[in-house]
């Protein structure tokens, strides 16, 4: 506990560095099989990084995808994958018109933003799947 307290008031870079070094050292003391397991998991995590992305979604939509995945007993990522495939197909077939949602953005990074009417989000909520 005393140690904890002391570390709370360390320079943040010192605390991070020390924690990292101690973790590595503790790992080095583990039996070979454990070490290999950690190395494998780390490699897996690294490989997965290319598959990862973060999008901001309306909470309701996130919940819908999550609930559906739960109900079907699959990963939400797979639901999202299929949803995006469907969207892109429709888009490429000219079946989607985004322009009606487009308004100028005040953000310095983007020229436009898409504003979806409330009813559109509600439309997927109401139907019970």
């Amino acid at each position: 506990m005393a140690e904890r307290k002391r570390r709370n008031i360390l320079d943040p870079a010192v605390a991070d560095l020390l924690a990292g070094m101690e973790e590595k050292q503790a790992e080095a003391r583990l039996p070979k099989r454990e070490r290999e397991k950690i190395a494998r998991e780390r490699a897996k995590m690294r490989a997965r990084k290319d598959h990862r992305v973060t999008y901001d979604l309306p909470p309701e939509l996130k919940k819908q995808v999550g609930d559906l995945a739960e109900q079907m007993g699959v990963a939400a990522s797979q639901i999202a994958t299929y949803a995006l495939i469907q969207f892109l197909q429709s888009y490429q077939n000219g079946e989607v018109d985004l322009s009606k949602f487009k308004v100028p953005s005040r953000s310095p990074r983007y020229e436009w933003k898409l504003v979806f009417p409330k009813s559109l989000l509600e439309s997927v909520k109401k139907k019970k799947v």
Binding site: R6, R7, I9, L10, D11, L17, L18, Q25
Partner: peptide
């Protein structure tokens, strides 16, 4: 040298003793 055991041991010791006075290395 963050790979040597001596550095880790002494770094721990110096941080225990001097806390926030210790700058990043």
């Amino acid at each position: 040298d963050r790979t040597t055991r001596e550095t880790i041991t002494q770094f721990q010791e110096i941080v225990q003793t001097f806390g926030e006075r210790v700058l990043p290395p």
